[in-house]
């Protein structure tokens, strides 16, 4: 049952060289740089996003994921969910309003997979980038690169996927939209939705805590994915897989890496999910078809190359 979590609202990623990262996320993927703060963090958004930003880049000697934030519908819901997390046994920490630019108070917890999540209710809304509030055009002029529309989802890897799935379902009200199950019926992959999207967050089992498999940005069409792949070659950016189709979610995809080795995806299409839908099930022994529907095999480093 839904509990008032509305979307993946932001992700803070560590990069090893900020200017190289900006050439990648801003100039190649086409996100809009909206701010820099006194801690050296750079804030970006996809042009369709109404909130001020969705990607926060921070410089570090180790790439990877700092945290993912989910926006909830109101401050009352935030207070309720904070209590529910504590009741469920989660240790929480709190960040005051303004600690992240233009963002209200945030309640943070670590999932059993080792990833840090936070929930918040308020963020400044600056509107879709480059469009008028009234009688808007369908898209703005002066977009660059892949013209990514929005931060869409992440796939995270770590141990204890069943316990993390239970936490997201019972406490935060996410639905299990698709799952990968082992022959003994254990969930090895949980694709979860707090919306009508096929997934807002996905977890896949691996022994190491807190790993990022990929962060995904939404494009409009399959043709946009083809041109995104062209741009990877033009800019000598390391492509991983695609353009191709996933079995899971049936979305269309191109995978590639940022200049610090964080895997990115650009993604379009795919299934939808209503709260009364049972989960779509994939067998772990058919994981090749589940992940790469055309190739039917997973290349050897796909599930090993993580940050």
């Amino acid at each position: 049952m839904r509990k008032g979590v509305i979307r993946p609202g932001h992700i803070q990623l560590r990069v090893m060289d900020m200017e190289e990262a900006l050439k990648h996320y801003r100039d190649l993927i086409g996100l809009i740089e909206v701010n820099r703060d006194d801690k050296g963090r750079v804030y970006l958004k996809g042009w369709t996003e109404v909130d001020k930003y969705s990607l926060v880049l921070v410089e570090s000697d180790t790439p990877g994921l700092d945290f993912i934030g989910f926006k909830v519908i109101s401050d009352d819901v935030l207070s309720g969910l904070k209590n529910d997390l504590i009741q469920y046994g989660c240790e929480i920490s709190e960040h005051e309003a303004g600690d992240l630019d233009a963002c209200g108070r945030r309640v943070s917890f670590v999932a059993p997979t080792g990833h840090t999540f936070e929930i918040y209710a308020e963020k400044e809304q600056t509107g879709k980038w480059g469009l008028a509030e009234v009688n808007p055009d369908p898209w703005p002029l002066n977009l660059t690169g892949m013209k990514a529309e929005r931060f869409d989802h992440c796939l995270l890897m770590g141990p204890n996927v069943p316990a993390t799935e239970a936490l997201f379902n019972k406490v935060l009200g996410f639905d299990l939209s698709e799952q990968v199950v082992t022959p003994d019926n254990t969930i090895a992959g949980a694709f979860m939705s707090c919306s009508m999207k096929a997934h807002d967050i996905a977890f896949v089992e691996c022994p190491d805590l807190g790993k990022l498999h990929h962060v995904s940005f939404h494009l409009e069409t399959w043709q946009d994915l083809l041109k995104a792949a062209d741009l990877l070659t033009m800019t000598e950016t390391r492509k991983d897989v695609g353009p191709t189709r996933h079995g899971l979610t049936s979305g269309q995809t191109v995978y590639f890496f940022d200049p610090s080795g964080n895997r990115n995806e650009v993604f379009c299409g795919g299934d939808y999910h209503y709260p009364d839908h049972p989960p779509v099930t994939w067998k772990a022994e058919d994981l090749g078809k589940a992940i790469f529907y055309h190739e039917l095999v997973i290349h050897p480093t796909y599930l090993e190359v993580l940050t």
């Binding site: 090893m16 610090s260 080795g261 964080n262 480093t301 090993e304 190359v305 940050t307």
Partner: peptide
């Protein structure tokens, strides 16, 4: 083996 080619993985 070839991974991220960016010093991360």
């Amino acid at each position: 083996p070839v991974g991220c080619c960016a010093g991360g993985c």
